[in-house]
């Protein structure tokens, strides 16, 4: 359901307008038909109005996703802004759905809308959370997998914002590799 959001001069503008998407897995329909745009926002206050209005990720059914992408970028590999890119992937253990998932996802969203990746924030396309029986996943998508300096900077800052310890590593996968292999075999391009 679309959430109407009023514009106001008193609100704090964001650098980018963002679009929240919702995916529900209905196997009788094509993948793209299961993807819905929820709403777009471009102020801090409208972000919170939306966030506080929708279900927390941990309460979604298995097979559902939320995606937050910059306006104009669709949350799929095929989009021109994504197709040469990749993702920093956080995989969670099953029991973490009730402890870490919502915190990690909120911190991911705040990193995006707050433009917390310094001069490399333009490389960020969006973020996706997948609710899955096998284990939930959160990822930040960037636009160019070959931009090593930008990608690794984003990974380091992201890891720091999630409060992950130095012993924990996270990996970056190019979408081109994910698209052609089963996810468990996708090669990791960078690690931080």
């Amino acid at each position: 359901q679309e959430v109407p959001l009023a514009e106001s001069p008193d609100k704090h503008p964001l650098q980018n307008r963002w679009a929240l998407w919702f995916f529900r897995n209905d196997k009788n329909r094509m993948w793209q038909a299961n993807l819905r745009l929820v709403t777009k926002f471009s102020t801090v206050e409208d972000f919170w109005a939306l966030y506080d209005h929708i279900k927390p990720a941990s309460k979604l059914s298995c097979g559902c996703d939320y995606s937050l992408f910059k306006d104009g970028i669709e949350p799929m590999w095929e989009d021109n802004q994504n197709k040469r890119g990749g993702r920093w992937l956080i995989t969670l253990a099953k029991q973490q759905r009730h402890t870490k998932l919502d915190c990690f996802w909120l911190d991911t969203l705040l990193c995006l809308i707050g433009e917390m990746f310094d001069n490399y924030s333009d490389e960020v396309c969006g973020a996706v959370i997948n609710i899955r029986t096998k284990g939930d996943k959160i990822a930040i998508w960037t636009r160019e997998a070959e931009h090593q300096e930008a990608v690794t900077h984003i990974g380091r800052v992201y890891k720091e914002h999630l409060g992950l310890s130095q012993e924990v590593t996270i990996g970056y996968q190019a979408h081109a590799d994910t698209a052609t292999k089963s996810s468990s075999l996708t090669k990791t391009k960078f690690v931080v």
Partner: peptide, 18 residues
């Protein structure tokens, strides 16, 4: 132009402000 950057603390403070 200048990028609009907000830190986590500021964003969290905006959550419940009137």
């Amino acid at each position: 132009g200048t990028r609009i950057i907000y830190d986590r603390k500021f964003l969290m403070e905006c959550r419940n402000s009137p």
